[in-house]
């Protein structure tokens, strides 16, 4: 890589880091300040869960979209939800969902 390209990598990295760090530190200062502003704005608390939901929506899209992969996705997510409903944990529902998703893909492949 040329030095100009390295500079582009460093500037992009620093910019991304600042977008992650500065708002975090700003909010921590705000929460601990003595000015009386010690609550997180309501809209920010609402945006957090919605961002997770958006990440879910993006990740639902199969790597290679086809009828089989969409069906496997629907079955896999249903099994994940069912196991989560029973256990209310993070690990087992994910393992069960991936296993069933993989099984459907393998059966269709055979």
């Amino acid at each position: 890589m040329s030095s100009a390209l390295w500079l582009a990598v460093v500037v992009s990295a620093l910019g991304t880091l600042l977008m992650r760090v500065v708002p975090f530190l700003w909010m921590q200062r705000r929460l601990n300040s003595a000015t009386g502003i010690n609550n997180m704005p309501q809209w920010l608390g609402i945006l957090g869960p919605l961002m997770i939901a958006a990440v879910l929506g993006v990740s639902i899209m199969p790597v290679n979209p086809s009828a089989v992969s969409w069906i496997a996705t629907a079955i896999g997510l249903s099994v994940t939800l069912l196991v989560w409903w029973k256990l209310r944990s993070l690990g087992w529902p994910v393992a069960a969902g991936v296993a069933v998703f993989g099984l459907v893909q393998v059966i269709a492949y055979i």
Binding site: I52, V55, L81, V94, V98
Partner: peptide, 10 residues
């Protein structure tokens, strides 16, 4: 698929 499964549980 581990990702949508994980995010669904969240």
């Amino acid at each position: 698929f581990a990702l949508p499964a994980l995010f669904l549980t969240m």
